[in-house]
């Protein structure tokens, strides 16, 4: 019982971070209609930013956090401007391949600067834990859940109730019509990248606080799984990202917790199995809308 509860807590932690990353994939896909496969690597860069801040001795945690989010947002903005914007009118395939290229570029730059060995961030946020009965819950878990929830709700309010949010919805539905309303599609897409990458920054903080390690491939593996979560929940949908993220996190934690040790290595495969099953049963995802292509 105790084991089950702590496994579920693990799953919720993992799921929260997946949800934030899935949200970034979803937003960018919804508005720019592209899969930003470099999204996961932005997280990796964010964690290295935290690592660098920790090396510089006594920076307070909140400055480290701001630096991490700022680095990610700026990286997202720059990548969009340099790599994706020039391809705005070309085929989706070239954009996709470019995104994969950016992903490798970021990994290799990280490899060059930080080498391939795993870095540890033991000093980053240690809050200890609370005990409820027999169960020990690390305090950081509450921070992770709270942050994810606040961000999801905040983003939902922003999109539904502000002018910029409505513009984003309009662009995601019909770029041409949005332009006729006076919406600058290019800057709306840039804004989406900045928000998505800032979310990756937040995910980097939570990841670093919980798992305390990073190597150049941390982001891409994590990112692909979060992408699977986004597709599972229905890409383009905010609640879909949340549900997809938590489902994946829980299933992964349960596989690691309860399968025999020899099989835990297969936990990564669970994400993809889930993705394949969903694609067979409901290609648009759990909460995805079926789009009718209009001529």
């Amino acid at each position: 019982m105790q084991m089950l509860i702590s496994t579920i807590i693990d799953g919720l932690n993992l799921g929260s971070v997946y949800a934030l990353v899935a949200l970034g994939y979803s937003m960018v896909y919804g508005i720019a209609k592209m899969l930003n496969f470099a999204h996961g690597d932005v997280i990796m860069v964010g964690i290295y930013a935290i690592f660098v801040c920790l090396q510089m001795s006594s920076l307070p945690v909140w400055i480290t956090a701001i630096v991490c989010v700022a680095v990610c947002a700026l990286l997202g903005f720059t990548v969009e401007k340099l790599a994706y914007k020039p391809l705005r009118d070309s085929t989706p395939l070239s954009v996709l391949i470019t995104a994969i290229g950016v992903s490798y570029l970021l990994q290799n730059v990280a490899l060059l600067i930080f080498k391939s060995d795993r870095k540890f961030l033991q000093k980053f946020i240690d809050l200890g834990s609370v005990s409820i009965g027999d169960i020990e819950i690390p305090k950081i878990s509450f921070v992770i859940w709270g942050t994810t929830l606040v961000i999801m709700i905040g983003l939902d309010i922003f999109i539904k109730n502000t002018k910029m949010g409505r513009a984003m919805l309009a662009v995601s539905e019909d770029k041409g019509a949005a332009q006729l309303m006076g919406v600058n599609v290019n800057s709306t897409i840039s804004l989406t990248f900045v928000i998505g990458s800032a979310l990756a920054g937040v995910a980097a903080i939570l990841y670093a606080a919980k798992y305390k390690n990073v190597d150049p491939y941390t982001g891409s593996v994590f990112g692909i799984k979060a992408f699977a979560a986004a597709v599972f929940g229905g890409i383009g949908s905010i609640p879909g990202a949340l549900i997809g993220g938590f489902t994946l996190g829980l299933i992964e934690a349960l596989t690691i917790g309860f399968l025999p040790d020899t099989l835990t290595a297969a936990s990564d495969g669970v994400a993809y199995a889930l993705l394949i099953i969903m694609l067979i049963l409901k290609p648009s995802g759990l909460l995805g809308k079926k789009k009718i292509e209009k001529v």
Binding site: E173, G176, A177, A178, Q179, M181
Partner: peptide, 30 residues
């Protein structure tokens, strides 16, 4: 294109192209 509307010209495109997922009121706000 996005600068034309503020110059005093408005275009109702073929096929209407309203924002299907927004409310009527939000469409008007757009």
């Amino acid at each position: 294109a996005h600068k034309i509307v503020s110059m005093g010209m408005s275009h109702v495109p073929e096929g209407r192209r309203i924002f299907q997922e927004l409310t009527v009121y939000d469409n008007l706000l757009m």
